[in-house]
Protein backbone atom coordinates (compact mmCIF):
# COMPACT_ATOMS: atom_id res chain seq x y z
CA UNK A 1 0.00 0.00 0.00
CA UNK A 2 1.28 3.47 -0.81
CA UNK A 3 2.22 6.00 1.86
CA UNK A 4 -0.58 8.18 0.64
CA UNK A 5 -3.05 5.37 1.16
CA UNK A 6 -1.72 4.70 4.67
CA UNK A 7 -2.24 8.30 5.67
CA UNK A 8 -5.69 8.52 4.09
CA UNK A 9 -8.44 8.85 6.67
CA UNK A 10 -10.56 5.74 6.98
CA UNK A 11 -13.72 7.80 6.81
CA UNK A 12 -12.67 9.24 3.45
CA UNK A 13 -15.16 8.25 0.73
CA UNK A 14 -12.52 7.09 -1.73
CA UNK A 15 -10.72 5.08 0.94
CA UNK A 16 -13.97 3.34 1.77
CA UNK A 17 -14.64 2.54 -1.88
CA UNK A 18 -11.13 1.19 -2.30
CA UNK A 19 -11.41 -0.78 0.92
CA UNK A 20 -14.74 -2.29 -0.15
CA UNK A 21 -13.25 -3.76 -3.30
CA UNK A 22 -9.80 -4.55 -1.85
CA UNK A 23 -11.16 -6.35 1.17
CA UNK A 24 -13.90 -7.98 -0.82
CA UNK A 25 -11.60 -9.44 -3.44
CA UNK A 26 -9.02 -10.48 -0.84
CA UNK A 27 -11.53 -12.43 1.22
CA UNK A 28 -13.35 -14.09 -1.66
CA UNK A 29 -13.82 -17.85 -1.51
CA UNK A 30 -16.44 -19.00 -4.01
CA UNK A 31 -15.87 -15.72 -5.81
CA UNK A 32 -12.36 -16.83 -6.80
CA UNK A 33 -13.77 -19.78 -8.70
CA UNK A 34 -16.40 -17.60 -10.32
CA UNK A 35 -13.87 -14.96 -11.35
CA UNK A 36 -11.66 -17.67 -12.81
CA UNK A 37 -14.60 -18.92 -14.87
CA UNK A 38 -15.46 -15.36 -15.95
CA UNK A 39 -11.88 -14.59 -17.00
CA UNK A 40 -11.51 -17.83 -18.95
CA UNK A 41 -14.83 -17.17 -20.62
CA UNK A 42 -13.93 -13.58 -21.52
CA UNK A 43 -10.58 -14.76 -22.86
CA UNK A 44 -12.29 -17.30 -25.11
CA UNK A 45 -15.00 -14.86 -26.22
CA UNK A 46 -12.80 -11.85 -26.94
CA UNK A 47 -9.35 -13.41 -27.39
CA UNK A 48 -10.37 -16.32 -29.58
CA UNK A 49 -13.90 -16.05 -30.95
CA UNK A 50 -13.97 -12.33 -31.68
CA UNK A 51 -10.41 -12.25 -32.90
CA UNK A 52 -10.47 -15.27 -35.21
CA UNK A 53 -14.08 -16.18 -35.95
CA UNK A 54 -16.15 -13.01 -35.81
CA UNK A 55 -14.62 -10.29 -37.96
CA UNK A 56 -16.73 -7.30 -38.91
CA UNK A 57 -17.97 -8.44 -42.31
CA UNK A 58 -18.51 -4.95 -43.72
CA UNK A 59 -15.10 -3.71 -42.59
CA UNK A 60 -13.51 -6.64 -44.41
CA UNK A 61 -15.57 -6.48 -47.59
CA UNK A 62 -16.50 -2.83 -48.08
CA UNK A 63 -14.14 0.06 -48.58
CA UNK A 64 -14.03 2.45 -45.69
CA UNK A 65 -16.79 5.03 -46.12
CA UNK A 66 -18.41 2.93 -48.86
CA UNK A 67 -20.40 0.64 -46.56
CA UNK A 68 -23.72 2.14 -47.62
CA UNK A 69 -22.88 1.53 -51.29
CA UNK A 70 -21.89 -2.04 -50.49
CA UNK A 71 -25.13 -2.72 -48.59
CA UNK A 72 -27.22 -1.01 -51.29
CA UNK A 73 -25.64 -3.18 -53.99
CA UNK A 74 -26.16 -6.30 -51.89
CA UNK A 75 -29.82 -5.53 -51.23
CA UNK A 76 -30.63 -4.61 -54.81
CA UNK A 77 -28.78 -7.58 -56.30
CA UNK A 78 -30.39 -10.06 -53.96
CA UNK A 79 -33.82 -8.85 -54.99
CA UNK A 80 -32.84 -9.12 -58.67
CA UNK A 81 -31.42 -12.60 -58.29
CA UNK A 82 -34.65 -13.69 -56.66
Amino acid sequence: MSAKHKTMKKTNFWYRVFDLYYDGFRNMRLGKTLWTVILIKLLIIFGVLKMFFFPNFLKEHAEQGQESEFVATELVERAESH
Binding site: F54, P55, N56
Partner: peptide
Amino acid sequence: FEFGTNWS
Protein backbone atom coordinates in the same frame (compact mmCIF):
# COMPACT_ATOMS: atom_id res chain seq x y z
CA PHE B 1 -20.67 -10.49 -32.66
CA GLU B 2 -23.11 -12.46 -34.78
CA PHE B 3 -24.85 -9.28 -35.92
CA GLY B 4 -21.59 -7.89 -37.28
CA THR B 5 -20.37 -11.08 -38.91
CA ASN B 6 -23.37 -13.17 -39.95
CA TRP B 7 -26.00 -10.46 -40.37
CA SER B 8 -24.06 -7.54 -41.79
